[in-house]
Structures are given as C-alpha cells and as structure tokens.
Amino acid sequence: METVVAQVFTGLSSASVLLLVAIGLTLTFGQMGVINMAHGEFLMAGSYTAFVTASILRGSALSLPVALVVGFLIGGLLGIALEATILRWMYDRPLDTLLVTFGVGLILQQLARDIFGAPAKEVSTPTWLSGTVPILGYGFPVTRLFIIALSALCVAGLFAMLRLTDLGRRIRATVANRDLAESLGISTRRTDRTTFFIGSGLAGVAGVALTLLGSTGPTVGTSYIVEAFLVVVVGGIGQLKGTILAALGIGIGRSFLESWTSGSMAQVLMLLAIVAFLQIRPQGIFTTTTRSLA
C-alpha cells in the first residue's frame, strides 16, 4: 500500500511538470499548427532563470517566487521572438516548422553551453520547501507537493482565462476557425502572439519547477520535448482536457513501470502502450465531433 501511494505521488509530481510543458505545446500546436521543437529549450531557459535568480538572491526565501515570474516572462519572450522572426512565415507548414524550430533549439542549447558551461548546475532548494509531510503513512517531499500545486494552479488559471475572459474567447475562436475569427474582427495575428507568449511562458515555469527535482543542464529540454509531444498527441491535438488526462496517465504509468522494471525498460513499455493506444484511437482521447457539412 505504502509503495503504491508513493508511486502515485511521485508519478503525479513528474506528471505535473510534464503537464506544464505539454499544455503550452497543445496551445501552440492546436491553435497555430506549429510544431515547436524549441519548446523544450524554453523550459531549459526557465531552469537557468531559476539558477541565476538563486545566485543573485543568494538563498533568499523570495528567490523561487521571483524565479517563477521571471521564468514565465523569459519563456514567453523567447516564444514571441521565435514567432515574430521565424514562425509567422511558416503557418500551415508543420513539417518546416519542425525542422526550423529543431535548429533553433540546438542554437539555444549551444548558447546555454557557452554562457553557463556544459556541466549541470544545481539550484539549492529553498529552506521553506525542504523536509517531508506525512500523508497516509508516507513522507512526501514538500518540493513535490509544491510542484503539484503549482501545476494545478497554472492549469486552473489557464482554464479560467480561456472560459471566462474575452482574451480566452478570442483564443478559442481562433483555434476553432481562423477565417471566421478574422471575419468577426478578431486579429488572429495578435491572438497567435499572445497564445505563443502564454504557452512558452508555461514552459519557462515548468523549467523553474524542474530545478526543485534535479540539476539543470543545456540538454534538459530535449528529455522533455518528445514526451510532451506524446502527451499532446495522446490527448488529442488542441484538447486541453485530453492533455491533462494524458499527462497524468503517462506520468503515473511510467512511475509504476519504473518501480517494477528499470528506467529504460519503463520507457520502452510506455512507448509501446502509446503506440497501441493510438492504433485504437488515432485522434487521441478527445476529439471534436459535429454535424458540420464542411
């Protein structure tokens, strides 16, 4: 029982980071049809933001909250820069965006290597997040609890924004039908840029959160990007609810598989499970169905 609870919990916390990465991708992939391979490097930028903030604020209790805000902004600004300089010219050419953003990702990795050096950097956990909390007879690390709460908060905020605000309506209108949104006076270009900012910013937040779990290196993004895309595809492209379910399923599932076998074996089994799932439901968990004539 105790190990089951522990596995669910560990899985939940890694699923939370995965979710933050994947939900940004769902937004950009779903809305703009852009396959952004550099999304993982936005996460890396977030991680280094946490590192830099921690070294400047030197153990201050504020360093993590500051890093979260700055990480969001840095991720978002990188996203806007990528959108404004390159991606805007290649909408509806997903394969080209894949290659170009992969290249951008490599450049950003090298940039990180030049600035911070190749060895991994450690960010010390703030004292208010150290220790464990006993729940159901198992001592949960506070850092992991914090990550779960952070992810839940971000996702809830995103949902509220999409459902309740005008900006959210604009975004949903643009996702649903670009031409129609334009003909209703919505600037889809501006909406795209805002969406890209938010999606990339969430990757930055994920990067900051990641420093609570392990060290930071130039290639930290690459280990997440593939899995994040799997989450997006399994969840159904552009479907936020599907993304959440898929992230939880993949995160917790892998956590269990890892406890039964080795890490690499768990990866193989997880991929097999995903391939099998997509055979049955190629469109992902959720899809849009209507009586549309078009």
């Binding site: 949903r172 649903a176 129609l180 003909s183 849009t288 209507t290 549309s292 004539l293 078009a294």
Partner: peptide, 14 residues
C-alpha cells in the same frame, strides 16, 4: 464589412 461563408461556418463547439 462582414461576410458569411459558403459552407455554414460557425463555432461548432460553442
């Protein structure tokens, strides 16, 4: 200046 489309185009999910 507003328009409609040949195939009735609305936001089906909304």
């Amino acid at each position: 200046v507003g328009r409609t489309f040949q195939t009735a185009t609305v936001f089906n999910d909304l």
